[in-house]
Design a protein around this nucleic acid. Sequence first.
DNA 1: CTCGGAAGCGAAAGCGGTTTCGCAAATCAC
DNA 2: GTGATTTGCGAAACCGCTTTCGCTTCCGAG
Lengths: 332, 332
Amino acid sequence: MADQVITLSDVAAEAGVSLSTASKALNGTDRISEATREHVRLTADRLGFRHNALARSFARGRSQTIGVLTHRASNPFTRVVLATVATELGAKEQAILLYDARMEEQRDVTESILQLRARRIDGVIVIGTSTSFRTPSFTSRFDVPVINAFTVPEDPQDTTITADDLAIGRLAISHLLSIGRRRIAHLTAEPHDIAAQRRAEGAGQVLADAGLAWAAPVRFGHWREEFGEQAAAALLAEVPDVDAIFCGSDAIGRGVERVVRASGRQVPGDVALIGVDNWESLMHDQRGTRHLTTIDVGLEEIGRRVANRLLEGDLEPGVEYVEPQVVIADTA
Amino acid sequence: MADQVITLSDVAAEAGVSLSTASKALNGTDRISEATREHVRLTADRLGFRHNALARSFARGRSQTIGVLTHRASNPFTRVVLATVATELGAKEQAILLYDARMEEQRDVTESILQLRARRIDGVIVIGTSTSFRTPSFTSRFDVPVINAFTVPEDPQDTTITADDLAIGRLAISHLLSIGRRRIAHLTAEPHDIAAQRRAEGAGQVLADAGLAWAAPVRFGHWREEFGEQAAAALLAEVPDVDAIFCGSDAIGRGVERVVRASGRQVPGDVALIGVDNWESLMHDQRGTRHLTTIDVGLEEIGRRVANRLLEGDLEPGVEYVEPQVVIADTA
DNA sequence: CTCGGAAGCGAAAGCGGTTTCGCAAATCAC
DNA sequence: GTGATTTGCGAAACCGCTTTCGCTTCCGAG
């Protein structure tokens, strides 16, 4: 506790070498005989020496800290990515400095950028939302590597790792087809929502490839449970023999399920349901607690990759997509 | 971008004062004439000077970084607290360094502690789970302030801010009583789960105070949706005229709702339902998307308070509880 | 007019490492 | 055996800021 701290000079003195030799020995830099190196290492261990990270950062000019820019950190998807990134970076001794800003507001963001640069952060992770809004490009505003997570980048050259909405749509329909459904409908969010558009597009492709068409025109609305209820009610009235519904999100799926069951239909017997997000695992952590069949968009994988790419420094320009996974449960 | 960086010496030179004067002027420490101070400030602004945070941390011996210890960062509740803490600290220029460990595993934790100390962190936040397991005490293992969030602390002297499970139970029943329900049942998690116990206890108190008893013995099971289904089915068979169910969590509530509706009963007409967690807002962010009436345990508030208490340094020993809030929606 | 204290400022010593550079000894080519 | 390299190590500069301490100057008290 109150043990006074061992510095590198202490180690050097104890080992009978110079400060610089000790430094190089422990860092593995420069030419040092294997014998000396080992000797220094052993004395360091014996004394319980640990580099003062502050001094080290200062001397090296690298902070061991990654800046994270979020649009709204209270967004549940953002939280998942953020927590994953923090965990992954923490395991590698990297701290994170979070700036939660409304990215539309230039002043805010500019200030954040200045702060981050003053902190000499080693890199930047931008966590966006892959839905309604394109994330402005920050790449050129830092002199350190910048990587985007879960965004629709404004500049296609920005290094970005995100969900594959087209594949999500394809996967959903493929699964419904694979369990024998043919009269399939789709209820999803606002028509201008980018994720909703792409999911619908991917879904439509697979359907067309199978020589089928939607059982009813795609209904656009909101990501909400209530919308699921309303839209499902209207859908059932219009196409009573629909046998599967692809719901744009699990929230919508929840509402849909309630209405479908209330209409006396069996799920999945009469109508199969599949959602997107894998909420239940996001909420539960524990396994084996699934109810709604869904598609996992891979948020955690995005977080892991983003963190590791940044640390390894292999940032290739362009968008990299994470493969979605179908999570089979009780409803399809 | 490639603009070379302005240092404090530059400012001092430009302002025609010594380095030390410049430092003191900008920091507001020591005695400096108001004129000089202002003059230095202006030149600093004009030059666009920002302290090099690394040098500053080094000189001061404080890292502007808070260590965060989590038990399982992938736990959804932990994530909420973590994201809130990160946001709150980020707004005050504090980075976080996350160690996600299984707290039971001593080796892991000890290593984390050494790392954190080497980093000269300014404080520690321990995020636990307020349910099945007591969080070991770390307070004496650091020489910086330690605060617990959302934990059941092993040592009651540890500074802790957490959810008030007793109050949650009380609030749930009070609400059900206030809307006129009298035949109330409770379905909740494992009997050894601390949160489940306390919620049941608080609920029982209010019921007794109203001169009532449970419509059926409290059923303990799991935090799962499936448990909600099973338990509700059994409950309805046993007490067909139950008019309200207090569900230990929203997950349980979801399962319960499905079974209650399937039995032909109206919700909330015949049976009112109330859960705990406020999942929907945790998942949604947007407002106005509620379905299940529930109790918000105040995770975000816990995160905010923990962060601010730590920075302000007013850590009083003992447990501080966050007041739960009832969130009225469609089911009660 | 003198003296003690306070106010305002600067010189310089850290903080604890990393890194450049130079030097002596050892190794190599021929 | 000689000169050219290479190897192994230490001296010292440096990273940019904070902070102690001491030196003037100024002021008010007596």
